[in-house]
């Protein structure tokens, strides 16, 4: 891959997501952009993080991007490989700091859907993958971060199915449902970075990527985004050096960070 190409949106997302990770954290990840971001974080500002995968591998020696969550790159020379129930159990027990999930739809309270599109469960327009570990990660890890591309359908007024509970109906509803953990803290998209307003728990613009106005971000959303008071900061972009690491060392074959041609 040529290294002089301008940064593409997937690279921006991977970088911004990597900045959500702090050093020494234990993080639950699946394949795709979360993994790219985690490896980038490990190679830059957070060298002491530990990766946990639902298939049971954790802290593998880095080699290539895993093709499957069960694949050898998720447990290459792992010091321990756990059974699935134990792997999630450590998140329930408070030993995992953060988790990262994608979404097909997400609503203003950070409830996410990877089950189905349509109004009838038994006859959906499209059946998606189902939960896999998504519900478990969103129910158990201390802090949850969503990542994905943003448009009016994906940022939905109402999700067709709640696979992963966010702040449910806002306010105290998540706590009242008995969920253990904090709930979603951030959503990283192709347009910007969002957090959740502390009282209502509605999604709020935190920063917007270069060239994205609040109006544009709103246009790419099916629900009303909360705007903070004052000027909205521009999301920090990766330096040339970090872009080089991303392209040459993290995902050299461009499996996840090159846009389909």
């Amino acid at each position: 891959m040529s290294n002089d190409k301008p940064m593409n949106p997937l690279e921006m997302i991977a970088y911004v997501l990597s900045r959500q990770i702090e050093d020494n954290e234990v993080i639950y990840i699946g394949t795709g952009l979360p993994m790219v971001a985690a490896i980038l974080a490990k190679k830059t500002h957070a060298p002491h993080i530990t990766f946990v995968y639902e298939s049971g591998g954790q802290d593998p020696e880095q080699l290539e991007m895993p093709w499957s969550v069960g694949g050898p790159m998720t447990w290459r020379k792992s010091p321990i490989i756990m059974e699935m129930s134990y792997s999630f159990g450590q998140a329930a027990a408070g030993m995992v700091d953060k988790g990262f999930l994608g979404f097909a739809q997400i609503d203003m309270y950070g409830n996410a859907n990877t089950h189905m599109i349509g109004s009838e469960f038994t006859n959906p327009k499209v059946r998606l993958t189902g939960s896999g570990g998504n519900n478990d990660v969103s129910s158990l890890v201390d802090k949850l971060i969503y990542v994905g591309l943003q448009d009016q359908n994906k940022f939905a007024k109402k999700v067709d199915f709640i696979t992963s509970p966010g702040w449910l109906e806002g306010g105290e509803s998540r706590k009242n449902a008995g969920l253990l953990n904090n709930g979603p803290v951030a959503v990283i998209t192709s347009a910007g970075v969002y957090d959740f307003e502390p009282e209502t728990h509605r999604m709020r613009i935190k920063t917007l990527h270069p060239g994205v106005s609040p109006e544009l971000a709103q246009l790419a959303s099916g629900f009303e985004l909360v705007r903070p008071a004052g000027a909205i900061p521009v999301t920090e972009t990766p330096s040339k050096e970090i872009l080089q690491i991303l392209r040459n060392e993290v995902d050299p074959s461009g499996l996840f960070i090159s846009l389909p041609s």
Binding site: E83, S85, S131, G133, N135, D136, S139, L140
Partner: peptide
């Protein structure tokens, strides 16, 4: 979810009629 089903299998292995979970809520 994967985790809920994994708990159902594990409960069976442990000889328990079931278990209480904080997933799925």
């Amino acid at each position: 979810s994967h985790g809920l089903m994994a708990q159902g299998f594990k409960a069976a292995q442990l000889g328990m009629p079931g278990c209480f979970s904080k997933q799925g809520l």
